[in-house]
């Protein structure tokens, strides 16, 4: 337990020390948010609701990004640097190392969500019942699990460059297709139907329901759980194959 705590604490510290993280996960989403609610205001009906909606999108966008990118790339990097090999010579188990990475990352997400909620809330003077803020925050935190699993899958890739390219591509595609940058209603009909099966859409949709005073749909939750399993099984399989050599 002590090992797990130490490992998580250090993991979280390391993420905060990374300038790219601060820039991409905190500054970028907030800049986007300000830009789309203050500068480039679109005609989306109820402006107050749109401000809340987009704030959820941005928080989800940020947390999804650091789950996929930060976690996956760090795993690849540490394996290429031989650190993972060194750990195998110590009594610490691979499972503890892996869990610590996930938990450490989640601790960072708590911070990210708070920063984005507070700054976005202040910029547009958003007022919501406390219970909605909290449940939306918890949803974004827990809903990130499939993306952490996807990060773990990317973490099995051999080359840093490939992993970085692939994860960037997946990340941006998920953000756009999931309606995190633009509401789903503005997308082509076909895409709107397909979105039901895209994890990033269901992730965002849960938070969008919460701020509208609704509960996230059961179907959405099931889609997210299904993706978690798929990504986990794939990455366990890939790890097994790599170790067999």
């Amino acid at each position: 337990m002590k090992i797990l705590w130490n490992e998580c604490r250090l993991e979280a510290l390391r993420v905060f020390r990374n300038r790219y993280f601060i820039f991409w996960s905190l500054i970028m989403p907030i800049v986007f948010y300000v830009f789309y609610t203050k500068v480039m205001v679109q005609d989306v009906g109820d402006p107050k609701l749109w401000e809340k909606h987009l704030l959820m999108s941005m928080a989800a966008f940020s947390v999804m990004g650091s789950s996929i990118m930060a976690l996956g790339l760090r795993l690849v990097h540490e394996r290429n640097q031989g650190w993972t090999m060194y750990l195998k010579t110590t009594p610490v188990s691979g499972v503890v190392y892996f869990i610590a990475k996930m938990v450490g990352q989640t601790a960072v997400h708590v911070f990210t969500i708070i920063v984005i909620f507070v700054s976005g809330g202040l910029v547009n003077g958003i007022s919501m019942p406390a219970i909605e803020w909290i449940t939306a925050g918890i949803w974004i935190l827990l809903g990130a699990v499939p993306f952490l699993a996807l990060g773990g899958l990317i973490g099995t890739m051999m080359k840093s460059d490939t992993a970085s390219g692939v994860s960037n591509l997946i990340y941006l595609a998920l953000a756009v297709l999931g309606g995190m940058w633009m509401p789903m209603e503005f997308m082509p009909k076909l895409l709107q139907q397909a979105a039901q099966w895209i994890p990033s859409y269901q992730y965002g949709a849960g938070a969008w329901s919460i701020i509208r005073g609704e509960t996230p749909s059961l179907g959405g939750i099931l889609v997210l759980i299904a993706y978690t399993f798929v990504f986990m099984i794939l990455s366990i399989q890939r790890r097994r194959m790599q170790e067999a050599i």
């Binding site: 002590k2 090992i3 130490n6 490992e7 250090l10 510290l13 390391r14 020390r17 990374n18 540490e78 640097q81 031989g82 650190w83 090999m85 060194y86 110590t90 009594p91 610490v92």
Partner: peptide, 20 residues
């Protein structure tokens, strides 16, 4: 083949590994 973990101080990495 092993490079040290980065973005940590020497003390932090030693404390972490001692804990194992």
């Amino acid at each position: 083949e092993v490079r040290l973990l980065d973005t940590v101080t020497v003390k932090e990495i030693l404390q972490l590994v001692r804990g194992y």
